[in-house]
Amino acid sequence: MCDTCGCSHEHNHKETKTIDLNQSLLKSNEEAAASNRKHFDEEGIFAINLISSPGSGKTTLLEKTIDALKEKINIGVLEGDIETELDAERIRKKGVPAVQITTGGACHLDSLLVHKAFHSLEHQLNGRKLDILFIENVGNLVCPSFFDLGEHLRVVLISVPEGHDKPVKYPKAIRTSQVLVISKTDLLPHFDFDMEKIKKDALSLNPSLTIFEVSAKTGDGMQEWIEFFKKHLLSHE
């Protein structure tokens, strides 16, 4: 006999409930990102998330950007990689505090990793305030675009050797970024790279995208990129 209702046969009296959520699948990351952003805002820090495929020139662009800005602006860097301290060492050589985040296999940073790494960076600063925090993501044009880190600006790099078809192949990276840097433009004579097409495609995907053509090696286009930063920094203050 059924214990619950006293009827003569066994059956299950399971009470079920439907909970309407309609919330993001990435809620836990987004909450931690919002808390990072709030912390950056309180500290007056402008945070930039740099994403790209491996080898597009994120670290080199960062080195040159640091050279151009560091006299007047306090910069800190979080370096994301699967393994090694190599990139953080490159940045420290520029006299800028840097913390390496090694994910040990994960192909993107998330907001909790950034939270922890930022606290380590704060220890290095000994109370000195930052104006800009650069977060260099793990080299990958797919996964990082899903994870808000609490940044104010997402910059995606596509280098000339990668080809002009990258925006249409990796639309989410373009859709979620505010700036596209087309890097290694000194290599244009050696590649069949259609500059007009990449810009047109990128702008179709994201009409408000700001696009720079830069060669960190020769310095071509660096001026515009640096001016953009100075302007952004002023408006952020």
């Binding site: 079920t16 909970i19 959520l21 699948l25 249409v168 179709s204």
Partner: peptide, 30 residues
């Protein structure tokens, strides 16, 4: 994704209004 124009007026000025969702809509529990 790749670059439609409006089938009604031919304009290229378009915005995505759905198709990028990543939501948990509801959960059923005992």
């Amino acid at each position: 994704f790749t670059f439609p124009s409006c089938p009604f007026c031919g304009s290229f000025g378009l915005k995505i209004i759905s198709g990028e969702e990543q939501h948990i809509e509801k959960v059923e529990v005992e």
